[in-house]
Simulated scan of single mutants.
Amino acid sequence: MKLNPYLMFNGQCETAFKFYEQCLGGKITAMMTYRESPEPDADQIPPEWHDKIMHVALTIGEQELMGSDNPPKYQEETKGFSVSISLNDPAEAERIFNTLAENGVVKMPYQQTFWAYRFGMLVDRFGIPWMINCDRDAG
């Protein structure tokens, strides 16, 4: 079994995933717009959404983060989850936290906790919640 987070956006998916590719050191391996879809019902998507992302995949090591733009009638508020990243490198964990936090909202500052060398929570500029954890043994 393989679990992959699938993030939904309201028109900013391409920008978000290009940002995540740089921030997380991954590689976008697939990106398809609604215009490129072979789905016969794709013409039901409003014209202003034809260049929005129907599906994107970002590979980071052996992990994959996926996403798409939800047409407005399907878009819902992001709630009830966070994308969690665990690292052993304190400097890299802090860099990722700070980069994701740019123009976002820090919910819990990146700091030492009883379970981790450093841990922090934020919602990035695209509305995606993240938890960054640097293992206790890393310090």
Rank of each mutant, 00 (worst) to 15 (best):
M131V: 13
M131G: 12
A116T: 14
M131N: 15
W130T: 05
I132D: 15
M121F: 06
C134D: 15
A101E: 00
V105D: 09
Y117C: 12
N133I: 06
Q111K: 13
A101C: 01
R118A: 11
A101Y: 00
N103E: 00
R136T: 04
F126Q: 01
I128G: 13
Q111R: 13
W130R: 04
F119A: 11
R95D: 04
F97G: 15
M131P: 14
I128E: 12
W130V: 08
A101W: 00
A93I: 07
I96Q: 01
F126P: 05
E102D: 09
P129W: 06
R118V: 09
M131H: 13
G120P: 01
R125A: 08
D135H: 08
N133M: 06
G127W: 02
V123N: 04
E92N: 15
G104D: 01
V123S: 02
V123C: 03
D135P: 03
M108A: 08
A116P: 10
Q112S: 11
F119I: 13
M108N: 05
T99C: 07
N133P: 06
K107R: 10
P109N: 10
R118M: 10
R118P: 09
L122P: 01
N98C: 03
I96D: 01
W115K: 11
T99R: 02
A101P: 00
E102Q: 11
F126G: 05
A116C: 12
M131W: 08
M121A: 09
V106F: 03
K107F: 04
N133K: 05
D124M: 11
I132N: 14
F97L: 15
R125F: 03
M131L: 15
G104C: 03
F97T: 15
W130L: 06
V123D: 03
A93L: 08
G127M: 05
I128C: 12
Q112P: 09
E92S: 14
M108T: 10
Q111Y: 10
N98W: 01
R118E: 06
P109H: 07
R136K: 11
F126C: 04
A93V: 12
V123E: 04
L100P: 03
T99W: 01
F119C: 08
P129L: 10
R136F: 06
Q111H: 12
G127H: 03
E92P: 14
I128A: 10
N98T: 01
M121S: 12
R95Q: 05
F97R: 14
G120Q: 00
P109G: 11
Q112M: 07
T113N: 14
P129C: 13
E92H: 14
M131T: 14
M108R: 08
N133A: 07
F97K: 13
R95N: 05
E94N: 13
R95T: 07
E102G: 05
C134E: 13
R136C: 01
E92L: 15
W130E: 04
N98K: 02
Y117M: 08
P129Y: 08
R118H: 11
R136Q: 07
R118W: 06
F114V: 05
M108H: 07
E94I: 11
A101F: 00
F119D: 05
I96M: 02
F126M: 04
P109A: 11
R95A: 04
P109Q: 09
G104I: 05
E102P: 03
F119R: 10
Y110T: 06
F97I: 14
F97E: 14
L100D: 02
I96R: 02
G104K: 00
A116D: 15
I128T: 13
F97P: 15
